[in-house]
Design a protein around this nucleic acid. Structure first.
Lengths: 185, 185
DNA sequence: ACAGCCATGTAACTCGTTACATGATTAC
DNA sequence: GTAATCATGTAACGAGTTACATGGCTGT
């Protein structure tokens, strides 16, 4: 009987647990910052309020330990947290990625508006894309030196490279679409 | 006063409205099928139960009209539905895409498991990717002949091309990652 | 006749968000 | 001193899911 520890957690819980698996101890606030810097590019950065409630849950499950100085509380993985996370990594079926792409959704409905509206939509998306890529490149640069085989941030660096390449290709494809739409005049 | 018609709808409502904007009349069941075929690649395909409750809401708002033969009910856009959708397209700020990528999330934590686990993860993802691309290519092929400038499915075809290219690039990048991980032995 | 698909819903639940509230510390 | 940032929560809500329930129609 027990505390039904094995109740399935949502993926976001494991994601936060994962952000704590790099050997340091973080406050909820710091954890949110790390999520903003990295997790948001290929998962989601939970709201502050959710970060705190997830930490509560993980703590109840003894997957993290809390150390507080009265004013702030830092969380780090417990042994159980590490094994739970590792087991999840190895044994849980991996869902196919989900993309929520408001630009693609609008392009689908392009027939309802004039081509200029679509062109502007795509051009604005190019700009947003460049900004995001710049953010991700900053992250990637900050990993230089700790991104070699065996280094602590080897895998985060691989993921960042993946993301940058994704942004580059997205840019190329939008430019292609813009060309095709311009050609139809 | 007022039925507060202008209450903000979630994007998914507009997405379903959009699927009804191609001139035909669909039952909830058919609408779900269309979402499975197209929308799911760059948005989400809502659960059946949600399709029906969204249709109820859209009907309450007079954005769709219902025509039933007693056993089944078909929905089509009203004039108001079309203008609401068009206004949304033109005036609503466009969010940046959100990607939920369980494979990238696991790769980030690669240091916790052995390289074989990661290799298998990526290889399985390649397979899943090919299956999805095959599905999308079927859709694309079915649009041949109605995908020229001015045709009804011109824009859906552009979106499908986008998606196929995205899948191709994702494959290339995963292969690259596999190579880099293999090289580290 | 039986399986599989077409068709429509209800109920319970969880995830995750926004809005709100509070207060300490740090930088200028 | 005052603005920004650090730090931690609560409450209300909505979106969307899964599980369940029902029954007609179609092909073999």
């Amino acid at each position: 009987m027990g505390q039904d520890l094995s109740r399935q957690l949502p993926v976001t819980s494991y994601a936060l647990l994962g952000l704590l698996s790099f050997g340091d101890s973080l406050t909820g606030y710091e954890l949110k910052q790390r999520a903003d810097r990295t997790l948001r590019f290929y998962w989601v950065s939970p709201a502050m309020s959710q970060v705190y409630s997830e930490l509560d849950r993980l703590h109840d499950l003894r997957l993290v330990r809390a150390r507080g100085d009265g004013r702030t509380t830092s969380y780090s993985l417990t042994r159980r947290g590490t094994t739970t996370l590792t087991r999840w990594l190895r044994e849980t079926p991996v869902d196919f990625p989900v993309l929520k792409h408001p630009v693609a959704l609008r392009l689908l409905l392009g027939a309802l508006v004039d081509p200029d509206t679509i062109t502007t939509l795509l051009e604005n998306h190019l700009e947003a894309l460049d900004e995001e890529r710049a953010e991700l490149e900053k992250v990637r640069i900050s990993l230089q030196g700790v991104d070699q085989v065996g280094d602590r941030f080897r895998y985060p660096a691989l993921v960042a490279d993946w993301g940058i390449s994704y942004f580059e290709h997205e840019r190329a494809i939008i430019e292609d679409l813009l060309g095709r739409i311009a050609a139809e005049r």
